[in-house]
């Protein structure tokens, strides 16, 4: 029971990350299916899943051969870049510089792209729909693989419960679902995701923070603050432009 409680946050985080990415992939598959029907979209989805499984089965065991500190450093740097990108976008969205994430708009755009692609490349629409579904499933699937590796190898899978629970907001709302379209929620989730990312390269460099995982709470506040400050500056700069 105790061990289940200990691993539950990491399992939940990986599960929620998978759902978020699956929604993205499903939007694109749905666009392909709406335009051309389910058979090519289902075929592309199945092929994408098979390809993804093959990649994981082939490359997964290679991770064991990489020294753990190098793996922590590499994954930490990638997470830092990934998270900073998210937080940057969240700040720009909060400032109104870039539009909020809109699944409906993505659906419409994918459908239009698909039709245009079929015309331009003189492919059948069914073929284009299948390829689009395959690409969406493969790409979002690889994102899930990266996030699951990060949750598993990164600090969020560490010893204490606070660190594990703090990684949940990152994965539960990355600005994609309706609730997280709200700007503050977007900022908050992006800021929370920074918790583990800042620890990533630090861990690989042998940096030990006072208070260990509890320091994550301070990082959350600092990155939320930085996101809000950046957003405030961006809003002012944009106002100067329009003035």
């Amino acid at each position: 029971m105790g061990s289940w409680l200990a691993v539950a946050p990491a399992v939940t985080a990986a599960f929620l990350a998978s759902i978020v990415e699956a929604v993205e992939a499903f939007t694109i598959v749905l666009a392909a299916a709406t335009l051309r029907g389910w058979p090519p979209a289902a075929l592309g989805t199945t092929a994408g899943l098979a390809l993804l499984a093959a990649i994981v089965l082939l490359l997964g065991p290679l991770l064991d051969r990489v020294p753990i500190h190098l793996l922590q450093l590499a994954i930490g740097i990638l997470l830092l870049l990934f998270g900073l990108g998210w937080l940057r976008r969240a700040s720009l969205r909060a400032a109104g510089i870039i539009p909020l994430h809109d699944e409906d708009a993505i659906f419409a755009s994918e459908a239009a792209d698909l039709a245009e692609q079929a015309n331009r490349q003189r492919r059948s629409l069914g073929w284009a729909a299948g390829i689009t579904a395959l690409k969406a499933v493969l790409l979002e699937g690889v994102e899930v693989v990266f996030i699951v590796i990060a949750v598993g190898a990164g600090p969020a899978s560490g010893r204490s419960l606070p660190a594990r629970w703090c990684s949940l907001p990152e994965l539960s709302s990355t600005g994609r679902c309706r609730a997280s379209r709200r700007i503050l929620s977007n900022l908050a989730s992006a800021s929370c995701c920074r918790l583990s990312e800042c620890f990533g390269p630090g861990k690989g460099l042998g940096i030990a923070w006072p208070g260990q995982d509890l320091a994550l709470l301070l990082f959350a506040a600092l990155f939320l603050g930085a996101g809000l400050i950046g957003s405030g500056f961006a809003r002012k700069l944009a106002a100067v432009e329009f003035a």
């Binding site: 800042c198 990082f219 990155f223 950046g230 957003s231 500056f233 700069l237």
Partner: peptide, 18 residues
Amino acid sequence: LLFGSLGLLIASVCQAAR
């Protein structure tokens, strides 16, 4: 590393909004 990341983030957001 921590404060450098914070600074770079704010600078990048401002750069994009400029």
